[in-house]
Nucleic acid binder design. Structure first.
Lengths: 112, 112
DNA sequence: TAATACGCTACGAATTAAATAGCAAGAGGT
DNA sequence: ACCTCTTGCTATTTAATTCGTAGCGTATTA
């Protein structure tokens, strides 16, 4: 398996620029969703799967491995959770929650 | 083609929550990279393709349509560019640039 | 002992992306 | 008119990813 890591070429990025490695990592199905859900606290594999609307275990497992290798999540006593870096990243993407609601409203009423 | 739009079920999201629709949209290959590159200003299809490390035209074209339908990018005189909403979104993800460099450094030296 | 929850793995099918070639339209020059 | 170039994009084939489902092995609880 090929993991997205800064400093080396990754899928879709021949330069290995950190931001492109990050985009490659996050630009996979459910990667952002997993971080988002884990921000609520540690949870088991199956709880996480359920929160991610029943994503298939194979995809979930793959994402977990990628995110773990990238130092964003880890597995503790209470299940999977964000690492310190993962919490930092979540703090950055957190505003997307509020913004997405604005976005949704404006897509419904483009003349706002 | 099935576009990611808030308010209705999308790929991987049966609930239609705005944040999940957004994650679905951004969680596709090159979606984030395209927004990132367009923040530098309007550019032609081929210029954008070149900046995205030679992404295939079919993928680029698909992403352009999705992002256009979602109101994040548009096509003006000088080529493709971010809409007002696109600029807003970029402002939110912009901090990822600096953070990703920290992240890269800490992955190389985990004992920092 | 049975039942349950757990973290996964296997595998075929479906979807998505990549790679490459090339077309039609427009601009510009000769 | 003709050639050349750029542009936006489509077509086609092939590769990679994701999905959906079934189920295994272990641990815990009843």
């Amino acid at each position: 398996m090929r993991y997205a890591r800064p400093g080396q070429p990754v899928r879709g990025s021949k330069t290995g620029k950190p931001i492109m490695a990050l985009f490659d990592l996050l630009g996979r199905n459910w990667a952002l969703g997993i971080i988002w859900q884990l921000s609520a606290g540690a949870m088991t594999f199956r709880a996480l799967q359920e929160r991610c609307e029943g994503v298939s275990p194979s995809v979930l497992n793959t994402r977990i491995k990628e995110l773990t290798a990238s130092g964003l999540i880890t597995r503790g006593e209470a299940g999977y959770c964000l690492t310190e870096m993962g919490e930092e990243l979540f703090a950055l993407i957190r505003p997307l929650g509020a913004w997405s609601m604005d976005w949704a409203a404006r897509l419904d009423a483009p003349d706002a």
